[in-house]
Design a protein around this nucleic acid. Structure first.
Ligand code: FES
Ligand code: FES
Lengths: 140, 140
DNA sequence: CTATATTCCTACTATCTCGATAGGAATACG
DNA sequence: CGTATTCCTATCGAGATAGTAGGAATATAG
Protein backbone atom coordinates (compact mmCIF):
# COMPACT_ATOMS: atom_id res chain seq x y z
CA UNK A 1 0.00 0.00 0.00
CA UNK A 2 1.10 3.50 -0.86
CA UNK A 3 4.04 2.17 -2.80
CA UNK A 4 6.23 4.77 -4.44
CA UNK A 5 7.09 4.25 -8.13
CA UNK A 6 10.70 3.52 -9.00
CA UNK A 7 10.65 6.77 -10.98
CA UNK A 8 10.43 8.74 -7.74
CA UNK A 9 12.79 6.48 -5.82
CA UNK A 10 15.42 6.76 -8.54
CA UNK A 11 14.96 10.50 -8.82
CA UNK A 12 15.57 10.98 -5.13
CA UNK A 13 18.62 8.73 -5.11
CA UNK A 14 20.04 10.68 -8.02
CA UNK A 15 19.47 13.98 -6.24
CA UNK A 16 21.03 12.62 -3.08
CA UNK A 17 24.02 11.68 -5.20
CA UNK A 18 24.23 15.22 -6.58
CA UNK A 19 23.79 16.77 -3.14
CA UNK A 20 26.61 14.72 -1.67
CA UNK A 21 28.84 15.64 -4.60
CA UNK A 22 28.10 19.30 -3.84
CA UNK A 23 29.07 18.92 -0.19
CA UNK A 24 32.72 19.45 -1.04
CA UNK A 25 34.48 22.68 -0.17
CA UNK A 26 34.68 24.18 -3.64
CA UNK A 27 31.14 24.10 -4.99
CA UNK A 28 32.17 24.97 -8.53
CA UNK A 29 34.04 21.77 -9.18
CA UNK A 30 32.59 18.57 -7.90
CA UNK A 31 28.91 19.25 -8.13
CA UNK A 32 28.51 18.34 -11.79
CA UNK A 33 27.70 14.75 -12.63
CA UNK A 34 26.51 13.11 -15.80
CA UNK A 35 23.36 11.07 -15.92
CA UNK A 36 25.36 8.04 -17.00
CA UNK A 37 27.77 8.38 -14.08
CA UNK A 38 24.94 8.61 -11.56
CA UNK A 39 23.20 5.64 -13.14
CA UNK A 40 26.33 3.55 -12.87
CA UNK A 41 27.02 4.58 -9.28
CA UNK A 42 23.45 3.86 -8.23
CA UNK A 43 22.89 0.80 -10.42
CA UNK A 44 19.97 2.38 -12.24
CA UNK A 45 19.08 1.80 -15.88
CA UNK A 46 20.96 4.63 -17.68
CA UNK A 47 18.34 5.36 -20.31
CA UNK A 48 15.57 5.35 -17.76
CA UNK A 49 17.39 7.75 -15.47
CA UNK A 50 18.03 10.06 -18.42
CA UNK A 51 14.32 10.69 -18.74
CA UNK A 52 13.96 11.24 -15.03
CA UNK A 53 16.76 13.81 -14.97
CA UNK A 54 15.24 15.66 -17.91
CA UNK A 55 11.98 15.88 -16.02
CA UNK A 56 13.70 17.18 -12.89
CA UNK A 57 15.35 19.79 -15.04
CA UNK A 58 12.08 20.93 -16.60
CA UNK A 59 10.67 21.41 -13.09
CA UNK A 60 13.60 23.53 -11.98
CA UNK A 61 15.07 21.07 -9.46
CA UNK A 62 18.35 20.64 -11.32
CA UNK A 63 20.26 22.57 -13.96
CA UNK A 64 21.58 20.81 -17.03
CA UNK A 65 24.67 21.65 -19.00
CA UNK A 66 24.59 20.17 -22.43
CA UNK A 67 27.33 18.97 -24.70
CA UNK A 68 30.69 17.49 -23.95
CA UNK A 69 31.79 18.04 -20.37
CA UNK A 70 28.19 18.68 -19.38
CA UNK A 71 26.02 17.10 -16.74
CA UNK A 72 23.62 18.01 -13.98
CA UNK A 73 23.89 20.05 -10.81
CA UNK A 74 21.35 21.07 -8.18
CA UNK A 75 19.49 24.24 -9.13
CA UNK A 76 19.84 25.57 -5.58
CA UNK A 77 21.22 24.60 -2.23
CA UNK A 78 20.13 21.21 -0.90
CA UNK A 79 18.59 22.94 2.11
CA UNK A 80 16.28 24.86 -0.22
CA UNK A 81 14.92 21.79 -1.98
CA UNK A 82 12.02 20.29 -0.08
CA UNK A 83 11.19 16.63 -0.63
CA UNK A 84 7.66 17.61 -1.58
CA UNK A 85 9.10 19.66 -4.45
CA UNK A 86 10.80 16.53 -5.77
CA UNK A 87 7.80 14.28 -5.34
CA UNK A 88 5.46 16.74 -7.03
CA UNK A 89 7.93 17.29 -9.85
CA UNK A 90 8.03 13.58 -10.59
CA UNK A 91 4.53 12.36 -9.77
CA UNK A 92 2.28 15.37 -9.43
CA UNK A 93 0.37 16.54 -6.42
CA UNK A 94 -0.43 14.19 -3.55
CA UNK A 95 -4.05 13.14 -4.10
CA UNK A 96 -5.26 10.02 -2.30
CA UNK A 97 -8.69 10.24 -3.95
CA UNK A 98 -10.04 12.24 -6.87
CA UNK A 99 -12.57 13.97 -4.66
CA UNK A 100 -9.88 15.97 -2.90
CA UNK A 101 -10.81 18.83 -5.19
CA UNK A 102 -14.26 18.09 -6.57
CA UNK A 103 -16.67 16.42 -4.19
CA UNK A 104 -18.65 14.56 -6.82
CA UNK A 105 -17.03 11.17 -6.69
CA UNK A 106 -19.77 9.70 -4.51
CA UNK A 107 -23.44 10.32 -3.86
CA UNK A 108 -22.88 12.11 -0.55
CA UNK A 109 -21.44 15.11 -2.31
CA UNK A 110 -20.04 17.82 -0.10
CA UNK A 111 -21.23 16.17 3.12
CA UNK A 112 -19.18 13.06 2.39
CA UNK A 113 -17.35 12.00 5.52
CA UNK A 114 -14.75 9.67 4.00
CA UNK A 115 -13.69 12.59 1.85
CA UNK A 116 -12.68 14.61 4.90
CA UNK A 117 -10.71 11.64 6.12
CA UNK A 118 -8.77 11.43 2.87
CA UNK A 119 -8.11 15.14 2.84
CA UNK A 120 -6.69 14.75 6.33
CA UNK A 121 -4.41 12.00 5.07
CA UNK A 122 -3.20 14.23 2.26
CA UNK A 123 -2.43 16.85 4.90
CA UNK A 124 -0.39 14.41 6.96
CA UNK A 125 1.62 13.30 3.94
CA UNK A 126 2.15 16.82 2.65
CA UNK A 127 3.27 18.01 6.07
CA UNK A 128 5.91 15.31 6.29
CA UNK A 129 7.16 15.85 2.76
CA UNK A 130 7.29 19.62 3.22
CA UNK A 131 9.13 19.33 6.54
CA UNK A 132 12.10 17.49 5.04
CA UNK A 133 14.66 19.00 2.72
CA UNK A 134 17.21 17.25 0.60
CA UNK A 135 19.80 18.39 3.10
CA UNK A 136 17.91 16.74 5.94
CA UNK A 137 17.94 13.49 3.98
CA UNK A 138 21.66 13.46 3.27
CA UNK A 139 22.39 14.24 6.92
CA UNK A 140 20.08 11.61 8.37
CA UNK B 1 0.44 10.47 -6.37
CA UNK B 2 -0.39 8.20 -3.46
CA UNK B 3 -3.77 7.46 -4.94
CA UNK B 4 -5.88 5.03 -2.97
CA UNK B 5 -7.41 2.13 -4.94
CA UNK B 6 -11.17 2.07 -5.32
CA UNK B 7 -11.09 -1.20 -3.41
CA UNK B 8 -10.12 0.68 -0.26
CA UNK B 9 -12.35 3.66 -0.94
CA UNK B 10 -15.35 1.40 -1.48
CA UNK B 11 -14.56 -0.66 1.57
CA UNK B 12 -14.46 2.40 3.79
CA UNK B 13 -17.66 3.77 2.36
CA UNK B 14 -19.37 0.44 2.99
CA UNK B 15 -18.14 0.39 6.57
CA UNK B 16 -19.28 3.96 7.10
CA UNK B 17 -22.66 2.83 5.83
CA UNK B 18 -22.71 -0.02 8.33
CA UNK B 19 -21.53 2.19 11.15
CA UNK B 20 -24.27 4.72 10.54
CA UNK B 21 -26.85 1.95 10.43
CA UNK B 22 -25.59 0.81 13.82
CA UNK B 23 -25.94 4.27 15.32
CA UNK B 24 -29.64 3.62 16.07
CA UNK B 25 -30.81 3.02 19.61
CA UNK B 26 -31.42 -0.70 19.41
CA UNK B 27 -28.20 -2.20 18.07
CA UNK B 28 -29.71 -5.62 17.38
CA UNK B 29 -32.01 -4.49 14.62
CA UNK B 30 -30.76 -2.00 12.12
CA UNK B 31 -27.08 -2.86 11.96
CA UNK B 32 -27.42 -5.69 9.45
CA UNK B 33 -27.17 -4.80 5.78
CA UNK B 34 -26.71 -6.92 2.69
CA UNK B 35 -23.86 -6.35 0.33
CA UNK B 36 -26.35 -5.67 -2.46
CA UNK B 37 -28.20 -3.05 -0.42
CA UNK B 38 -24.97 -1.21 0.44
CA UNK B 39 -23.85 -1.35 -3.18
CA UNK B 40 -27.10 0.18 -4.34
CA UNK B 41 -27.08 2.92 -1.70
CA UNK B 42 -23.48 3.82 -2.47
CA UNK B 43 -23.63 3.29 -6.23
CA UNK B 44 -20.89 0.68 -6.18
CA UNK B 45 -20.67 -2.31 -8.51
CA UNK B 46 -22.50 -5.06 -6.53
CA UNK B 47 -20.30 -7.97 -7.52
CA UNK B 48 -17.16 -5.99 -6.85
CA UNK B 49 -18.32 -4.95 -3.41
CA UNK B 50 -19.19 -8.57 -2.63
CA UNK B 51 -15.54 -9.51 -2.85
CA UNK B 52 -14.50 -6.55 -0.75
CA UNK B 53 -16.95 -7.46 2.01
CA UNK B 54 -15.75 -11.05 2.01
CA UNK B 55 -12.22 -9.80 2.49
CA UNK B 56 -13.24 -7.52 5.35
CA UNK B 57 -14.92 -10.50 6.95
CA UNK B 58 -11.86 -12.71 6.64
CA UNK B 59 -9.84 -9.99 8.40
CA UNK B 60 -12.30 -9.74 11.26
CA UNK B 61 -13.57 -6.24 10.53
CA UNK B 62 -17.14 -7.35 9.88
CA UNK B 63 -19.24 -10.38 10.71
CA UNK B 64 -21.23 -12.11 7.98
CA UNK B 65 -24.51 -13.93 8.39
CA UNK B 66 -25.14 -16.25 5.52
CA UNK B 67 -28.33 -17.42 3.93
CA UNK B 68 -31.67 -15.74 3.58
CA UNK B 69 -32.08 -12.76 5.88
CA UNK B 70 -28.33 -12.54 6.22
CA UNK B 71 -25.95 -9.68 5.68
CA UNK B 72 -23.02 -7.91 7.31
CA UNK B 73 -22.54 -6.08 10.58
CA UNK B 74 -19.50 -4.51 12.22
CA UNK B 75 -17.50 -7.02 14.22
CA UNK B 76 -17.08 -4.50 17.04
CA UNK B 77 -17.99 -0.96 17.95
CA UNK B 78 -17.07 1.70 15.43
CA UNK B 79 -14.85 3.37 18.03
CA UNK B 80 -12.78 0.18 18.23
CA UNK B 81 -12.08 -0.04 14.51
CA UNK B 82 -9.07 2.05 13.53
CA UNK B 83 -8.76 3.21 9.97
CA UNK B 84 -5.36 1.55 9.75
CA UNK B 85 -7.04 -1.77 10.49
CA UNK B 86 -9.28 -1.28 7.47
CA UNK B 87 -6.52 -0.14 5.17
CA UNK B 88 -4.26 -3.01 6.14
CA UNK B 89 -7.10 -5.50 5.78
CA UNK B 90 -7.74 -4.37 2.22
CA UNK B 91 -4.32 -3.43 0.89
CA UNK B 92 -1.75 -4.81 3.26
CA UNK B 93 0.78 -2.91 5.31
CA UNK B 94 1.79 0.61 4.37
CA UNK B 95 5.09 0.19 2.55
CA UNK B 96 6.28 3.11 0.38
CA UNK B 97 9.33 1.15 -0.76
CA UNK B 98 10.32 -2.49 -0.57
CA UNK B 99 13.39 -1.66 1.48
CA UNK B 100 11.30 -0.77 4.52
CA UNK B 101 12.09 -4.23 5.81
CA UNK B 102 15.11 -5.46 3.92
CA UNK B 103 17.74 -2.88 3.13
CA UNK B 104 19.04 -4.54 -0.01
CA UNK B 105 17.14 -2.61 -2.65
CA UNK B 106 20.06 -0.29 -3.38
CA UNK B 107 23.82 -0.40 -3.17
CA UNK B 108 24.03 1.71 -0.01
CA UNK B 109 22.62 -1.11 2.06
CA UNK B 110 21.88 -0.31 5.65
CA UNK B 111 23.42 3.15 5.49
CA UNK B 112 21.00 4.21 2.76
CA UNK B 113 19.67 7.67 3.55
CA UNK B 114 16.62 7.71 1.27
CA UNK B 115 15.49 4.56 3.03
CA UNK B 116 15.28 6.38 6.35
CA UNK B 117 13.27 9.08 4.65
CA UNK B 118 10.74 6.55 3.35
CA UNK B 119 10.49 4.84 6.71
CA UNK B 120 9.71 8.25 8.18
CA UNK B 121 6.96 8.70 5.62
CA UNK B 122 5.52 5.34 6.52
CA UNK B 123 5.52 6.47 10.13
CA UNK B 124 3.65 9.68 9.31
CA UNK B 125 1.00 7.78 7.34
CA UNK B 126 0.66 5.05 9.94
CA UNK B 127 0.30 7.59 12.73
CA UNK B 128 -2.52 9.35 10.95
CA UNK B 129 -4.33 6.15 10.06
CA UNK B 130 -3.95 4.77 13.58
CA UNK B 131 -5.20 7.99 15.16
CA UNK B 132 -8.58 7.85 13.42
CA UNK B 133 -11.32 5.36 14.15
CA UNK B 134 -14.38 4.58 12.10
CA UNK B 135 -16.37 6.51 14.70
CA UNK B 136 -14.20 9.58 14.21
CA UNK B 137 -14.93 9.41 10.50
CA UNK B 138 -18.70 9.17 10.81
CA UNK B 139 -18.69 12.06 13.27
CA UNK B 140 -16.47 14.34 11.24
C1' DC C 1 35.85 21.23 -39.27
C1' DT C 2 35.62 16.93 -37.12
C1' DA C 3 35.15 13.65 -33.56
C1' DT C 4 33.17 12.96 -29.25
C1' DA C 5 30.38 13.37 -25.18
C1' DT C 6 26.51 14.71 -23.45
C1' DT C 7 21.52 16.27 -22.93
C1' DC C 8 17.12 15.98 -25.11
C1' DC C 9 13.12 14.12 -27.74
C1' DT C 10 9.82 10.61 -29.53
C1' DA C 11 8.21 6.31 -29.98
C1' DC C 12 7.72 1.64 -28.73
C1' DT C 13 7.08 -2.77 -25.86
C1' DA C 14 6.53 -6.03 -22.22
C1' DT C 15 4.69 -6.72 -17.81
C1' DC C 16 1.84 -5.82 -14.06
C1' DT C 17 -2.06 -3.94 -11.41
C1' DC C 18 -6.67 -2.49 -11.02
C1' DG C 19 -11.47 -2.55 -11.62
C1' DA C 20 -14.97 -5.11 -12.84
C1' DT C 21 -17.69 -9.16 -14.54
C1' DA C 22 -19.43 -14.04 -14.79
C1' DG C 23 -21.07 -18.21 -13.13
C1' DG C 24 -22.11 -20.91 -9.84
C1' DA C 25 -21.44 -23.52 -5.05
C1' DA C 26 -22.58 -23.39 -0.15
C1' DT C 27 -25.62 -21.99 3.36
C1' DA C 28 -29.59 -20.56 5.86
C1' DC C 29 -34.45 -19.38 6.39
C1' DG C 30 -39.46 -20.22 6.19
C1' DC D 1 -38.62 -26.83 -1.74
C1' DG D 2 -37.76 -22.09 -3.19
C1' DT D 3 -35.40 -18.09 -2.33
C1' DA D 4 -31.99 -14.90 -0.70
C1' DT D 5 -27.76 -14.41 0.65
C1' DT D 6 -22.57 -15.10 1.31
C1' DC D 7 -18.63 -17.28 -0.69
C1' DC D 8 -15.34 -19.08 -4.22
C1' DT D 9 -12.73 -19.13 -8.65
C1' DA D 10 -11.77 -17.70 -13.01
C1' DT D 11 -11.46 -14.35 -16.53
C1' DC D 12 -10.99 -9.94 -19.11
C1' DG D 13 -10.00 -5.17 -20.68
C1' DA D 14 -7.88 -0.80 -19.72
C1' DG D 15 -4.39 1.70 -18.07
C1' DA D 16 -0.07 2.48 -15.61
C1' DT D 17 4.70 1.28 -14.96
C1' DA D 18 9.45 0.14 -16.10
C1' DG D 19 12.46 -0.09 -19.32
C1' DT D 20 14.33 0.01 -24.31
C1' DA D 21 15.66 2.03 -28.84
C1' DG D 22 17.22 5.27 -31.95
C1' DG D 23 18.61 9.30 -32.99
C1' DA D 24 18.53 14.80 -33.02
C1' DA D 25 20.52 18.89 -30.82
C1' DT D 26 24.27 20.99 -28.51
C1' DA D 27 28.69 21.93 -26.66
C1' DT D 28 33.70 21.02 -26.11
C1' DA D 29 38.37 19.77 -27.60
C1' DG D 30 41.77 19.30 -30.89
S1 FES E 1 -16.96 12.59 -2.35
FE1 FES E 1 -15.29 11.20 -2.64
S2 FES E 1 -15.81 9.46 -1.35
FE2 FES E 1 -17.53 10.81 -1.15
S1 FES F 1 18.00 0.51 0.57
FE1 FES F 1 16.17 1.08 -0.51
S2 FES F 1 16.73 2.98 -1.53
FE2 FES F 1 18.56 2.34 -0.53
Amino acid sequence: MFSVPTRTQYGIRALVHLARAGEAADPAIADLATSAAIAKAESISPKYLEGIMTQLKSKGIVIAERGKGGGYRLARDASAIRMIDIVEALEGEVRPVDCVENSDCCVQGNACMPRKFWIGLKGAIDDYLASKTLKDVIEA
